[in-house]
Simulated scan of single mutants.
Amino acid sequence: MVEIVPEARLSGGTPHGHDFLGANHGRNERRVWAVIALTVTMMVVEIGSGIAFGSMALVADGLHMSTHAAAMLIAATAYFYARKHLSNSRFTFGTGKFGDLAGFASAVILALIALLIGYESLLRLSNPVPIAFGSAIGVAVVGLVVNLVSAWLLKDDHAHHHHGHAHDHPADGAHGGRDNNLRAAYVHVLADALTSVLAIVALVLGSVYGWLWPDPVMGLVGALVIARWSWGLVRDAGGVLLDYVPPGEDLPDEIRAALGADGDRITDLHVWQVGPGHHAAIVAIRSANPQPLDTYRAKLAHIHDLSHLTLEVDRF
């Protein structure tokens, strides 16, 4: 006998929605839009001032800010779209993965930025160009301040994945978990802050000693660090998109330990993330003496972050 037990029956027999957005989805969306507003304002001021005062350094940094705002727009759009289509029945497992898709796209953009910075730095090492140290230092300092404020706004309180809620859809919906979309936005502003710091160091050295080489060397260092951050984001967001269970995720072991007892044998198990702090699972069990559904539900009640479950019970 094969019995398919849908998650709705395990959680009391009442159908439910598939809201697998992170606990701080709305707050994170608002913060990303705030950073976009801050960045666009700074961009307009820098480009306007650069044109008015004839400073190419200001114009160049303003144009760089525009790419920064575009990257933030990816994150904001993903938050909006996931929320807007939360009740769309065609997304059968909800819209919680939109953030990971946006995070993956942002990671690819970060990798391209690292390549461009590295390429430009190599060109400047082979063909040094004159630098207006005073103006450039001023621009870098202002950019650093803006990026530090942005980083503070985007800092994720749940940066480390943690378990904290049973699978029965708690009323407060307070699931934790890493939000790769917010993380991608945070890494973008962190990368900008890093390049500002390295630029300030290189420019100060150049203004004191007259050296031109520290600027491209610091650019290469920044490119390598940004590339490393990009790879980490590609790996984590890509893993979620491909339903990969990372080595540190103990949810499959918890399910096996909870259900693999009393003569029951788990013959198949699938676990995947459907949103920040939300996981789904399909479990196939063979048992000589299948238990009532409430018994299986009780065994799994302590499992954290399990938001959607399907059980298949097969009698020997």
Rank of each mutant, 00 (worst) to 15 (best):
N147E: 11
P128F: 05
P128T: 10
H163C: 10
H160N: 13
G138V: 03
V129N: 08
H162I: 01
K155A: 11
D156A: 13
S135I: 09
G143W: 00
P130D: 07
A132C: 05
K155I: 12
L144I: 05
D157N: 15
I131Q: 07
L148K: 05
V149I: 14
L154G: 00
L154E: 01
V129C: 04
L153N: 10
K155P: 07
A166D: 14
A132E: 09
A132N: 08
H161C: 09
L153A: 10
H161W: 11
L144W: 04
H163G: 14
G164Q: 00
G134H: 04
A132P: 11
S150D: 10
A132T: 07
V139A: 03
G143R: 01
L148H: 02
G138K: 02
L153E: 02
H158I: 05
I137Y: 01
A151H: 12
N147Y: 09
H162Q: 13
L154R: 00
H160G: 06
F133W: 07
V139L: 02
D157M: 13
N147W: 04
G134E: 12
P130I: 04
V141S: 01
N127I: 05
G143S: 13
G138Y: 02
K155S: 15
H161N: 15
P128L: 04
L153D: 01
A159W: 12
